[in-house]
Computed example of a mutant assay.
Amino acid sequence: MANFTRKDVGALLARQGILIAFVVFMVGFALINQRFVAPDNILGVIRSSAILGVIALGVTFVVIGGNLDLSVGSMMSFSTIVVLDLHDRLGPVLGIPAMYAMTLALGAFNGFLIGYLRLNSLIVTLGMLSAIYGLTLTYSGGKNMDIADKEGTWFSVFGQGDILGIPSPIVIFAGLAIILALLLAKTPFGRKVYAVGGNGVAATFSGIPRARIVFFTYLISSFCVATAGLIQASRSLGSQNTVGQGMELEVLAAVILGGASLLGGSGTVFKTVIGVLILGFIQNGLLLAGLQFYVQYVVTWVIIILAVWLDIAAKRGRLWSPIA
């Protein structure tokens, strides 16, 4: 009986441990600083998490499809710099679509190399991380970018505006999450993404075009990155050319926290949203607790290790390796 109880507890912690830890964090931060649960603070955390969340929505498709995308941080820097530059050169009406087209081209290149040429996604996107940063620096001449006429443009509506009292970044994040959740859960394409990520060989023998599915997951990821770049550029009307540096790890942490498996074949958009919010509230709680911002990097690393451990434990049904 005691052995059954330990196994049962282990299985529970493997599947729900991160949610239990989140509740403990929330209660602990609320006791340390009551402002943590204030409505304006909660709304502010969701708003500040929207950019990360939008990127994570696209990466969810990639991870469920059995791959990784480590190029999203550098790609967001590129899209942010490009849309700011094209805003002044072409105007926002033409500049925004042009930025989307350029960012989608980068995503298509990732998808071609990984989907059709069957190259390793970790190696390809890690290489693209550096390549796109070089492209961004080349495009900007190594300089940061600012909109010339910040007072006379409607471009700020995406990052600074609101819709019915709700900040625009939250509305964009929520709207995109709903659309992509329906795409993943209710369409044949979504079922094929799960099939390819769960067992690519079996999916191919079942007549599923694996290469095409992988290709489109990277297109979806790049579209989300472009949207995040649009929000970032609109929020500040200016940007450093390294604004997305390091975001790939935070995005991956949020996706895995939400329950998507690094092995592919499992995860949902809704749970990714929860993972993004968990990460956002933990970071906010650390700041309100008086810890310096750089502590967040250590906490993010711990969260990634914990999330991967729990993911593997959930697959084998126990927290510890049977060999140990």
Score class of each variant (00 low, 15 high):
residue 1 M to G: 14
residue 2 A to N: 10
residue 2 A to Y: 06
residue 3 N to E: 15
residue 6 R to V: 13
residue 8 D to V: 03
residue 12 L to K: 09
residue 18 I to N: 00
residue 22 F to A: 07
residue 26 M to A: 15
residue 26 M to D: 08
residue 30 A to V: 09
residue 31 L to M: 14
residue 32 I to L: 15
residue 40 D to F: 10
residue 40 D to H: 10
residue 40 D to A: 11
residue 41 N to E: 08
residue 42 I to T: 11
residue 49 S to L: 05
residue 50 A to V: 11
residue 54 V to G: 04
residue 55 I to L: 13
residue 55 I to T: 06
residue 57 L to Y: 07
residue 60 T to Q: 13
residue 65 G to S: 11
residue 66 G to L: 13
residue 75 M to E: 11
residue 76 M to D: 09
residue 76 M to H: 07
residue 76 M to G: 07
residue 82 V to W: 06
residue 84 L to S: 03
residue 87 H to V: 05
residue 93 V to I: 15
residue 94 L to S: 07
residue 95 G to D: 08
residue 96 I to D: 03
residue 97 P to C: 05
residue 98 A to N: 03
residue 99 M to H: 12
residue 101 A to I: 15
residue 102 M to S: 14
residue 106 L to N: 00
residue 111 G to V: 07
residue 114 I to D: 00
residue 117 L to Y: 05
residue 119 L to M: 15
residue 119 L to R: 10
residue 120 N to I: 08
residue 121 S to D: 05
residue 121 S to K: 05
residue 125 T to H: 06
residue 126 L to T: 04
residue 129 L to Q: 13
residue 135 L to I: 13
residue 136 T to S: 12
residue 136 T to K: 08
residue 137 L to M: 12
residue 140 S to A: 15
residue 140 S to F: 05
residue 141 G to C: 02
residue 142 G to N: 04
residue 143 K to Y: 14
residue 143 K to G: 06
residue 143 K to V: 09
residue 153 T to L: 04
residue 153 T to A: 06
residue 157 V to L: 14
residue 161 G to I: 13
residue 164 L to I: 10
residue 165 G to A: 02
residue 165 G to Q: 04
residue 166 I to S: 08
residue 167 P to N: 11
residue 169 P to E: 03
residue 171 V to E: 05
residue 175 G to E: 12
residue 178 I to S: 01
residue 180 L to C: 07
residue 180 L to G: 04
residue 184 L to E: 00
residue 185 A to D: 15
residue 193 V to C: 04
residue 193 V to R: 10
residue 199 N to L: 11
residue 201 V to T: 15
residue 202 A to G: 12
residue 207 G to K: 10
residue 207 G to T: 10
residue 210 R to P: 01
residue 211 A to N: 13
residue 220 I to K: 03
residue 223 F to I: 04
residue 226 A to W: 08
residue 226 A to V: 02
residue 226 A to N: 05
residue 230 L to P: 11
residue 236 S to T: 15
residue 238 G to M: 04
residue 239 S to D: 09
residue 242 T to W: 02
residue 245 Q to R: 12
residue 246 G to W: 12
residue 247 M to P: 03
residue 250 E to I: 06
residue 253 A to I: 13
residue 253 A to R: 09
residue 257 L to Y: 00
residue 264 G to A: 00
residue 264 G to F: 01
residue 268 T to S: 14
residue 281 F to Q: 06
residue 281 F to A: 09
residue 282 I to Y: 11
residue 284 N to I: 09
residue 285 G to H: 08
residue 297 Y to A: 12
residue 297 Y to C: 00
residue 300 T to Y: 01
residue 302 V to H: 06
residue 303 I to K: 07
residue 304 I to C: 04
residue 304 I to R: 00
residue 307 A to K: 12
residue 307 A to P: 14
residue 309 W to G: 07
residue 309 W to T: 14
residue 311 D to V: 00
residue 311 D to E: 13
residue 312 I to A: 13
residue 313 A to P: 10
residue 318 R to I: 04
residue 318 R to C: 05
residue 319 L to Q: 08
residue 322 P to R: 10
